[in-house]
């Protein structure tokens, strides 16, 4: 089956760089399956799980905390703010982050501008995603 090159980088390191058949990425407006030959696109990501499919089966799952993806017919580059393989996610840390994000959102809901509120909401949702992913792992 046809493949494309998937690269996943976070500021701290290069996590993934190899040909894959399909990748499901958590785009800001809904999950998105990417196959080879897709039209060029730049999408924003939300917190969620990237699933990588090779030889007809999902071989790798990684959690990303927002970022961007650049899609071209032959290559997909994911620039994640943070990325962790699902197996390495820690539940307690995810819970701590949800707590913090909830507190931030409460604070933002009271005072801040709509944009700030939205940013806090995004972070809260991402943290919840992380908690879910950690529980599923």
């Amino acid at each position: 089956m046809a493949t494309f090159d998937l690269e996943l980088v976070s500021p701290e390191k290069l996590l993934l760089s190899r040909p894959v058949e399909m990748a499901i990425i958590p785009a800001a407006e809904g999950e998105m399956g990417v196959l080879p030959g897709m039209a060029p696109m730049i999408v924003a990501l939300k917190g969620g799980v990237i699933r990588v499919q090779e030889n007809g089966a999902i071989t790798e799952k990684l959690f990303v905390m927002g970022g961007f993806a650049e899609i071209t017919p032959t290559r997909v580059t994911v620039l994640a703010d943070e990325a962790t393989p699902l197996a390495e996610l820690s539940r307690s840390e995810a819970q701590a982050r949800v707590k913090k994000a909830e507190a931030d959102y409460e604070a933002a809901a009271a005072s801040a501008t709509p944009e700030e509120r939205e940013g806090a909401m995004d972070r809260l949702l991402a943290a919840r995603e992380m908690e879910q992913a950690a529980e599923a792992a």
Binding site: V9, E12, T77, L79
Partner: peptide, 18 residues
């Protein structure tokens, strides 16, 4: 650590250029 950060910066530059 510096070398590990390089790929991200490069990809970022590429995306920003386009």
């Amino acid at each position: 650590q510096a070398e590990a950060a390089r790929p991200y910066a490069e990809r970022m530059a590429r995306m920003l250029a386009s």
